[in-house]
Design a protein around this nucleic acid. Structure first.
Length: 116
DNA sequence: TGGGTGACCATAG
DNA sequence: ACTATGGCCACCC
C-alpha cells in the first residue's frame, strides 16, 4: 500500500523498539531480535546499537542489556560508567555491571507490545 | 562481489 | 568459574 519507503534499514526497526522501552525498564538484544523476526540474530541488534549513538533521536541503548542483565555495551557509550549512570538515573540499580532485579525490570516487546 | 565485523547466544570441556 | 568455538546475518568497505 503506497509504501514509498517500506524498506527501512534493520537498524531503524531496532531503534524504534528501543525507544518504546519504558523508563526504568530494560530488555535484551535477543528479545528485540525475536520481536523483529525469528530470522534476526541478536548480534544485529547489538550492532545496530553501536550506530544508535549517531542517531539524531536519542536511543535509550542503555536500557538494552544482554540476556544475563549484564551491561555488555557499557564501553561503547564513550565512558565505561556512562551506561551504568544512565540506568541508575532511571531508578535501575546496577552492581558489578549487572542490573539488579533484572527479572522484574525486564521488558519484553513480545509481551508488552503484543505477539506478532 | 565478497570478506570482515559485531554492545549475542548456546554449547562444550 | 573460565575460555573456546560455531552460528547468526545486516552493514560497510
Amino acid at each position: 500500500m503506497a509504501d514509498t519507503q517500506k524498506h527501512q534499514s534493520f537498524f531503524e526497526d531496532v531503534y524504534a523498539v528501543t525507544r518504546l522501552i519504558p523508563k526504568g525498564r530494560v530488555t535484551s538484544y535477543g528479545a528485540i531480535a525475536r520481536y523483529l523476526g525469528t530470522g534476526k540474530s541478536s548480534r544485529m541488534v547489538g550492532w545496530a546499537m553501536n550506530n544508535a549513538g549517531s542517531q539524531k533521536p536519542k536511543v535509550p541503548a542503555h536500557r538494552v542489556v544482554n540476556r544475563n542483565g549484564l551491561l555488555t555495551g557499557k564501553h561503547n557509550f564513550g565512558h565505561p560508567d556512562m551506561m551504568k549512570q544512565l540506568l541508575e538515573k532511571e531508578g535501575i540499580k546496577v552492581v558489578k555491571d549487572k542490573v539488579k532485579n533484572f527479572d522484574k525490570l525486564y521488558w519484553d516487546p513480545m509481551k508488552e507490545l503484543g505477539l506478532d
